[in-house]
Design a protein around this nucleic acid. Structure first.
Length: 189
DNA sequence: TAAAAGATCCGCT
DNA sequence: GCGGATCTTTTAA
């Protein structure tokens, strides 16, 4: 039983979106659920959504009711529903007022499996939120950096062997879809 | 008020 | 490799 590391603080998330996305790889996402059990997993894949001009970002329409949270302070999570069925977990990044967030797309080395799950990893944004029991209705707006909040990311080792590639599922974004803002830990690292 | 499209996943062919 | 599931969000009229 290892002692848990402290949680990443607001300053960590206040940096440039792409830096945060890169720096989150290898860290441990933690969720304390009802009954005190803690689910954990090592982040292996993220994507950056950066600024009001990013045509792939929900912030491209301005601070609409859904995306307003992306314009707020860093360290807050943004959970939304895609395709009517899958919840996606994002962490707001950058300065307060600048719309940016990191989509957390995959984890491995899962500990404390959620009810009904057996897989040792959860790669894919929908699979990840299902494995962690994260839903828009109950989690959108939670503060990752606030001491005592049930969701946090442990400080720890920054990953090595990171690869970048274009973001997934954003073909509608034109040239913005080509930017290499998807970050992954290389196979076997 | 309508209509289109979506930061996905799963099962079948 | 392809299409269905399923519903919220946003824009246009």
């Amino acid at each position: 039983m290892t002692r848990s590391a402290p949680r990443l603080d607001r300053a960590f998330f206040a940096r440039d979106t792409r830096e945060v996305a890169r720096d989150l790889l290898g860290r441990t996402l933690c969720h304390r659920i009802d009954g005190g059990r803690i689910l954990r997993g090592r982040i292996v894949e993220t994507e950056a959504y950066h600024g009001p001009d990013d045509r792939a970002s929900h912030a491209r329409f301005g601070p609409t009711p859904r995306a307003a949270i992306m314009f707020g302070p860093p360290g807050i999570i943004y959970v939304y529903l895609v395709y009517g069925m899958h919840h996606c977990l994002n962490v707001v990044t950058g300065a307060d007022g600048f719309p940016a967030a990191v989509l957390v797309r995959g984890v491995d080395r899962l500990e404390g499996l959620a009810p009904g799950t057996t897989a040792p990893n959860a790669v894919g944004p929908g699979r990840l939120t299902r494995a962690f029991g994260i839903r828009r209705e109950t989690h959108n707006g939670l503060d990752l950096a606030a001491p005592g909040s049930p969701l946090w990311i442990e400080t720890g080792a920054r990953a090595t062997g990171v690869t970048t590639s274009p973001r997934v599922g954003v073909d509608y974004a034109g040239a913005w879809a080509k930017r290499p803002w998807r970050y992954r830990i290389a196979e076997g690292r």
